[in-house]
Design a protein around this nucleic acid. Structure first.
Length: 418
RNA sequence: GGAGAGGUGGCCGAGCGGACGAAGGCGCUCGCCUGCUAAGCGAGUAGGGGGUGUUAAACCUCCUCGAGGGUUCAAAUCCCUCCCUCUCCGCCA
């Protein structure tokens, strides 16, 4: 959610935002008038309530006729106040219905564009592997060794579900453990958060209302399955106030992630590249607003360090405005090379959501002077297990159809190929 | 799932129609005192909305005692709904 002060003090900034985000259905001038109106009506009602309270507090000291008169007048005031506040609430609702869904402000350097095709490549590291044999895709490799079973996944749960077996499972836990080791060394606290959350957590992180069609709902209990542990990590400190000297607070959360992939029909249907359920280690940071852009680079650097240690060829892209989520002010994706697709595809993503989530979740910190401010929140993928397994398999495959384990993972996996 | 108890400020805890945004204690901050430490003394110490005003403030006002409704001139206190926590039983990894 945006700061309402922005609308009042810098309406042109809001206008620019609407243009950049290509939002055409919001009438800014009307919104400004609505904001003024709701404040005026509320101030009036509150003034009446002030009178009512003053009068009411005098009642116990009065007797007889004076008392009856006071109660009579206070009674009238009480009903006026009630009506006034109801009017103000209604105006608030109308205002919030427009204001709250507005997406976050966008960093000036974010490239223009509509789709991921318009993302700007910032750097390219490593070279795509050259094979002196017929390279296979991850599913061929995995089915040959029996470590991924999508057919039974489909039989039991439907399309985009799979079984991991044997060394694929050990690779998963090797990846996770390795990532936790690296991130712990950088001050990230390992967390296993809940994967079922209340609506408030999804709203607070900006996934609701805009992306609600991507979320699985457990209707009987009014809970939702998270698509990323970011949701539970961000909401963890909702309604809390940090002291400034404890920032940044950094977490590395491991969770299973659930995504409906609505609208992705026919896209990435082969293997486990895009599935409804996968495991992920996610970095999350609560930090001082003055250094959130520095923190953003820091998180990207952690992602790069991990990908580099594995030895995957990759590139970094600056995600264009049209491909940016509602809450992100800027987002970098790391895309690894996928030989079977002959292109770079997303394996990590890190966003600075500035104060957008913090405002909805009410996560603040107290500065030295004792004043409270919103923190900035950031998130970034450390290890998206399924997709990283695919990348490793395809890039490290050998002529005999097995896969070489990246050196960094060998001590964690306990074997050198699978 | 069944039975019971309870949710008050950073924490503990009192209050059970008006004098309560809330006694008392702990913690914390600042000051005083004590030639160390400890103790003692004094002051301060919740969050949010709106307004006037500077943008460093300052002031006024409203809301918040789990959440939301209701009764009343007046609600932490009474009523309703929901949420959460704890204990015992059942079930269970």
């Amino acid at each position: 959610m945006l700061d309402v002060a922005l609308l009042r003090d810098h309406p042109d900034d809001v206008r620019r935002l609407l243009e950049r985000r290509a939002i055409a259905d919001v009438d800014l001038d009307e919104l400004i008038v609505l904001d003024e109106e709701r404040r005026r009506v509320r101030a009036k009602a509150e003034h009446l309530r002030s009178e009512q309270k003053t009068l009411g507090s005098q009642v116990p000291d009065l007797e007889g006729k004076a008392r009856d008169e006071a109660i009579g007048r206070a009674s009238q005031l009480a009903s006026d106040v009630k009506q006034g506040l109801a009017d103000a609430d209604e105006l608030d609702d109308r205002f919030q219905a427009i204001w709250v869904p507005l997406p976050n402000r966008v960093h000036d350097e974010v490239p223009d564009g509509k789709t991921e095709e318009d993302n700007l490549e910032l750097k390219k590291v490593g070279e795509p592997p050259v094979f002196d044999f017929e390279a296979k895709d991850h599913l061929e490799l995995a089915e040959a060794t029996g470590i991924i079973d999508v057919e039974r996944g489909a039989k039991v749960s439907g399309s985009r579900f799979a079984y991991l077996q044997g060394r694929a499972v050990l690779m998963e836990f090797a990846l996770v453990r390795w990532a936790f080791d690296r991130l712990s060394a950088e001050g990230f606290i390992p967390v296993v958060p809940p994967v079922l959350v209340r609506e408030q957590a999804l709203f607070g992180t900006g996934f609701f209302p805009s992306d609600s069609d991507q979320v699985y709902e457990v209707a009987a209990d009014d809970l939702f399955l998270v698509g990323t542990s970011e949701v539970a990590l961000a909401a963890m400190h909702g309604d809390e106030i940090f002291s400034s000297d404890e920032l940044p607070v950094r977490y590395a959360g491991f969770s299973t992630c659930f995504r409906r992939e609505a609208g992705a029909a026919g896209k990435d249907t082969r293997g486990i590249f895009r599935v409804h359920q996968f495991d992920k280690v996610e970095m999350f940071s609560f930090c001082d607003p003055d250094r959130s852009w520095e923190e953003h680079e820091f998180i990207l650097a952690r992602e790069e360090a991990l990908v580099q240690e594995l030895g995957l060829p990759y590139r970094v892209v600056d995600v264009c405005v049209g491909d940016l989520g509602a809450s992100a002010a800027r987002k970098y994706d790391i895309e690894a090379w996928f030989p079977s697709q002959e292109r770079y595809r997303e394996i990590t993503s890190c966003s600075n959501t500035t104060d957008y989530q913090a405002r909805r979740l009410k996560v603040r910190f107290k500065d030295e002077a004792g004043n409270n401010h919103l923190v900035h929140t950031l998130n970034g993928t450390a290890v998206a297990v399924g997709r990283l397994l695919v990348a490793i398999m395809e890039n490290f495959q050998q002529s005999d159809g097995t896969v070489r384990v990246p050196d960094a993972l060998v001590p964690y996996a306990g074997f050198e190929s699978f």
